[in-house]
Design a protein around this nucleic acid. Structure first.
Lengths: 181, 181
DNA sequence: GGGCACATGTAAGCTGTTACATGATTAA
DNA sequence: TTAATCATGTAACAGCTTACATGTGCCC
C-alpha cells in the first residue's frame, strides 16, 4: 500500500495555472501554498524528471538550456484530474507543541508560559501573512476562475489561526491556576 | 542539522507517567495522544532499544521474557526534561484537502461539495472522540498533576475542530456561488 | 482446539530533508 | 567585478510506514 505521490499533484496543479521552471515552482509553492503545503528542491526536481518521462509535462527551452519552462500536456491535465479525485489522505498529525504541553507537568511553569507566548507570536505573524496573500490573490490577473478556491484556502488558515489564539488565551487561564495555586 | 528524534520524547514522556511494555505504549499513544501525535511499532521498538542502550530506560521482566515493562531511569528523567525544553519544531504542513481545494477549479463542482461533506463528517467524528477522551482523563486516577495539561491538549483539538466546521459552512457559501452562478 | 488479544521485533522501501556542487544571468 | 538572484541537479541520510515473521497466554 504505497502512498500516492502528493508532490506530483502539487507540481501538476501549479503548472496547470501557468508554465514555469522548477525554481519558480518552488517559489510559488512556498509563497502561495506555504501555509498548508511544502516542497523542497530535492523533491521537485526528481518529480519533474519523472513527470516528463511519463509524458505528463514537456519542457520548453530544450534539455541543455539553463532554464527549462515546464507545461502540462493533455495527458498531464488528465493525470491532474485523476489525482485530484483521489480521496485526500491526510498526514499523521505530529504537533511538537501539544506533545510538550501534554508532558508539561515535567517542566517548570515558566517554560510552559514561554511556549504559549512563542506560539501566539507565531500565529499572529501567520495572520499578518494571510492578509498579504489575500491581497496578492485579489491583485493577481492570473487568478481568474481559481480566485474563490484560492481564497477558501486562505480562509482555512485564518480560521485555524484565530482558533489557536483563543485556545492560547483559554489555556493560559487553565494552566495559570496551576502555577498560582 | 539533523532533526531531533521526537519519537524518543513521546516514549520517554509516556513512560514518565507509568512504566509499560512497547505494545501498550503504542496503545496509549494512539488512544490518548492520537489526535495530535502518532507512532508506529516500527518506530517504537527501535526507539526503546536505543533508549535502553543509552541507559535512559530499564526493562523489568528480563531480556528473554515475553513481556518487557520499561521504566525511566534518573538519566532518562533528565533526558526527558532536556528534550522537553528544546524548542518545538513543527512538521511542515501538508493538507491534502486544502491542496485539492486550491486546484478545485479543475474539478466538477460536485467533487468539491463531496470533499467538504466528507471533511465535515470526519471533524464531527473527531469532536465525538474528544468527549470520550475528556471523560477518560477525568476518570483516570493516574492523571493527577498531569490532568490540566492533558485537558489543554484536548481543548486544542476541540478548538481546531470547531474552527473547521465554521470554515466548511463558510466555504460552501463562497464556492456555492460559483456552482450556482 | 480455535481464536483473540498481547507482545516483540526485523526488513524493505518510500518520502523527504539537507548539504553539496555547479553554472548562468543580471544589476550595482 | 562582484554580489545577488535565478537555475539545476545529486548524494547521503534520517524518519517513518508497511508487511512480514514469530510467539505467548487466556478464555470459550
Amino acid at each position: 500500500m504505497t502512498r500516492p505521490r502528493q508532490t506530483d499533484l502539487a507540481v501538476l496543479g501549479a503548472l496547470s495555472v501557468e508554465p514555469m521552471t522548477g525554481y519558480r515552482l518552488r517559489q510559488e509553492i512556498t509563497e502561495t501554498l506555504g501555509h498548508f503545503w511544502h516542497e523542497s528542491f530535492g523533491q521537485i526536481y526528481p518529480s519533474l524528471a519523472r513527470l516528463e518521462a511519463e509524458g505528463f509535462i514537456v519542457a520548453q527551452g530544450g534539455v541543455k538550456a539553463s532554464s527549462r519552462v515546464f507545461s502540462l500536456t493533455e495527458a498531464g491535465e488528465a493525470e491532474l484530474r485523476r489525482l485530484l479525485e483521489l480521496p485526500p489522505e491526510s498526514q499523521q498529525p505530529r504537533s511538537a507543541l501539544l506533545l510538550r504541553i501534554f508532558f508539561g507537568a515535567n517542566l517548570p511553569p515558566g517554560a510552559i508560559a514561554q511556549l504559549l507566548d512563542d506560539h501566539e507570536a507565531q500565529v499572529r505573524e501567520k495572520l499578518a501573512q494571510f492578509a498579504g496573500i489575500r491581497a496578492n490573490i485579489d491583485a493577481d490577473p492570473l487568478a481568474g476562475r481559481h480566485r474563490p478556491y484560492w481564497l477558501a484556502t486562505v480562509a482555512a488558515g485564518e480560521s485555524a489561526a484565530r482558533a489557536q489564539l483563543e485556545w492560547v488565551a483559554q489555556t493560559r487561564v487553565l494552566l495559570g491556576e496551576q502555577c498560582a495555586g
